[in-house]
Write a protein that binds this DNA or RNA. Structure first.
Lengths: 339, 339
DNA sequence: CTGAAAGCGCTTACAG
DNA sequence: CTGAAAGCGCTTACAG
C-alpha cells in the first residue's frame, strides 16, 4: 500500500547524505543550518524527480502538529453553516490548514464525542458552534493550550474566544423596522433553545416591545420535531391572535417553514402581516413577496474566526486575552414589510 | 502540549505489563491472544480510570489506516453538496469513519492538490466529485489500492466506482412532462461544462426534442462569471426567442438565477412559459408558483456511496468489478408546469 | 557544514 | 499466556 512511497530514508540513501540533512532542506532550514547551496540543490532536484511528499502522520507524531482544524457545526446541511463552512475552508486553506468537520445536530453527547475524536486525531485547533454542557470539555482544551474559537453562540460560563453577531441589536432593529412600518402587534417566532444567540434575539425583541409599550406575542417551537411543531403550533398561534400584523422569525428554518404555513393559510404579506426573517438566504430573496431579512456578515465572520485561530496557532496556545466579538448585521429591506 | 496525555507505555509501566499486552487488550484481541480475563479486566479498568485514548497518528503510522475518508466536492456552499455531505457524514460516522472535506470550485489544479494532500494525510478512502483532468491521479489511487468512489459525475476514460443519477432519463422525462403540458418550444438552459452529468442531461433533452420533432433551443452559460452571464445571456436568449413556452434548467443555481431574471422580466409562469428545474430544493418549493423539479435521491446516493466505500475499505482495495450505478430520479410536479 | 542517534506512540511478528 | 524488540517516517538536540 505505501511501500511504493519514497521516504526520507530512501532519499538520504540514494544521495549518500543523512536524514538530518534531507529533513533540514525539506523544511527550509537549509540556510539556517548552513547547508551548502550545491547539496541543497541536489536534494531538491532529486526530491522533485522522485515526487517525494512527506508523511504528515509521522511528522505530526513528532511535532504534535497536523495543520488540521476541527470544525464543529450544528448541521452542515443548514445553509448558514454550509456557507460559512465554505468561507472558512477557503480562508484556512490559504493559511495552510485543512478542515475536518462534523455535525452535532444539537446533541451534547455527539458534540463531546466529536471534540474527543478530533483531539485523538491531533487537530491543532478547534472552531466550535457549541451545544449545551460543553463547558468542561472546552475549558480542558484551553488548559491543554489547544486554540479554540466559538462561533454563532458562546458559553457564558467559560472564557473563550467568540465570534458572532450582535443578535440583540439585530433583532431590536428588525422589530423596530416593523414598528416604523406601522405594525402594532408584533410576534416573535423562536425556538425553546437556551443558546445565547437565541436568548439575545429574544431580548432584542423584548427591549423593543417594552420601549414602544406594545403587546408581547412569543411563540417558542421545540427543536425536537420542529417541522411538525412549527406547522401545528404556528397555525394555532396565528389563529389565536388575529390582531397580529407583524412577525419576526428568529432563525432561518423557522422562517422557511413559517412562510409556507402563512401561504397555506392565505395570509397576505405585507398587507395583513409584515414579515422579517433572521439570517438571509435565497429562499427569502426569491419568495414572493421578497422577505426582509437580517443578514449575517458571513465572510467577515469567517475571516475573523480563522485570523484569530491562526494567531493562537502560531502562539501555540490561546492568547491571554480572549476576544468576544459581536459584529453588526445589516437589515435587507424587501417587500414583506411594505413601504 | 501532549505531555499530560497517557500513553500505552505509561499504562504498561504502571501495571507491570508489556506494551504488547496492553495493545492487544485495547484492540479487542485479548481473547484471541488468550490473555487472562483478570489481566484484561485490570487493564480495562485502569484505562478507564486514567481516561486513556489512543494516539491515532501513531496508530496510523504503523497500520497505514486513519479511519478517515477524504471527501472532495465542487463547493460545500452549494445546497446539493452540503446536503449530501450531511448525509454522507452521518453514514460514515456510523461506520466509524470521519470525513475530511474540501471544495475544488471546479478547478482541476485545486482538485489535484486536494487529492495529494489527502493522500499525504493518509486518508483511507476517497469520495470525489471529479473535475476534468483527474484521470491520471485517480488511476494512480486505484493502483495504490486506495478505494475511490466518484459521484455526481464520472470520468469516462477510467474504470472506477461511480454513484449518480440517471441524468439522461431524468432530463428526458422533465422535458416530456413539458410536452405533455402542451409546450412546443422548449429551451434547455445549461452550462458549457463537459462534465458527464451535464452532457447526459443535454442528451436527454435532445432525445426528447428529436423524438417529438420539436425545435432545439439551447443556451449554454460559461461556469466562469456564471452569475453575470446568466443575467445577461439568459435575458438576451429569452428576448431572441419570444415563442418559447417551456424552459428546463439543467442545474440548481441556473434555476435560481434564471427564475429571478424571469421575474424581473415579468414573464408569467406557467401561462407564458412553463418551467422545470433540475435538483429540487426549498427555493423551488417556496417560489411562487412552485417550480416543478427533478429530485435527486440524496439519501440513497449517500448510502450507496458509503456502503461501497466501506466494502472496499474492508477489502483493503477496490473491488475487482467497479460499479457504475445510475439511480432513477423523481419528478416533483408543481404549479410551474400548469396542469 | 553534516551525521549518528534518540524518540514521538503505537502495532506486530517472533520467541518462549 | 506474556514480553522484548523492531519498525512505521519523521524531527531535533547533540556532537564534531
Amino acid at each position: 500500500m505505501k511501500r511504493n512511497r519514497v521516504s526520507i530514508k530512501d532519499i538520504s540513501k540514494a544521495l549518500g547524505l543523512s536524514n538530518t540533512t534531507i529533513s533540514f532542506i525539506l523544511n527550509g532550514k537549509a540556510e539556517e543550518m548552513r547547508i551548502s547551496a550545491q547539496v541543497t540543490e541536489r536534494v531538491l532536484a532529486y526530491v522533485k524527480e522522485v515526487g517525494y511528499t512527506p508523511n504528515y502522520l509521522a511528522r505530526g507524531l513528532v511535532t504534535g502538529k497536523t495543520n488540521t482544524i476541527g470544525f464543529i457545526v450544528e448541521n452542515i446541511g443548514n445553509p448558514f453553516f454550509s456557507q460559512i463552512a465554505s468561507l472558512i475552508e477557503e480562508q484556512a486553506y490559504k493559511g495552510g490548514y485543512k478542515i475536518i468537520y462534523s455535525s452535532t445536530n444539537g446533541q451534547s453527547d455527539k458534540a463531546l464525542e466529536l471534540i474527543r475524536m478530533f483531539r485523538d486525531r491531533g487537530v491543532d485547533g478547534y472552531i466550535i458552534c457549541p451545544t449545551e454542557k460543553l463547558e468542561e470539555e472546552i475549558s480542558q482544551l484551553k488548559e491543554e493550550n489547544r486554540p479554540v474559537v466559538l462561533f454563532d453562540r458562546f458559553l457564558p460560563a467559560i472564557d473563550s474566544h467568540y465570534i458572532g453577531i450582535d443578535n440583540e441589536q439585530a433583532m431590536y432593529e428588525a422589530c423596530k423596522h416593523l414598528v416604523e412600518r406601522n405594525r402594532k402587534n408584533i410576534a416573535l417566532i423562536t425556538t425553546d433553545s437556551r443558546q445565547t444567540q437565541m436568548i439575545s434575539r429574544l431580548e432584542g425583541y423584548k427591549r423593543l416591545i417594552k420601549e414602544r409599550k406594545l403587546n408581547e406575542y412569543i411563540l417558542s417551537i421545540p427543536y425536537e420535531n420542529r417541522k411538525e411543531r412549527l406547522q401545528s403550533d404556528f397555525e394555532d398561534f396565528i389563529k389565536k391572535y388575529p390582531k397580529l400584523d407583524g412577525i419576526c422569525f428568529a432563525t432561518n428554518y423557522l422562517a422557511v417553514g413559517g412562510l409556507e404555513v402563512m401561504r397555506n393559510l392565505g395570509l397576505k404579506i405585507p398587507s395583513k402581516i409584515a414579515v422579517v426573517a433572521f439570517d438571509d438566504n435565497e429562499v427569502l430573496r426569491l419568495f414572493q413577496p421578497g422577505i426582509t431579512a437580517v443578514e449575517q456578515p458571513l465572510e467577515e465572520m469567517a475571516k475573523l474566526i480563522i485570523d484569530r485561530l491562526l494567531v493562537d496557532l502560531k502562539l501555540g496556545k490561546s492568547a491571554e486575552k480572549t476576544i468576544h466579538k459581536e459584529i453588526p448585521t445589516r437589515l435587507i429591506v424587501r417587500e414583506s414589510t411594505g413601504n
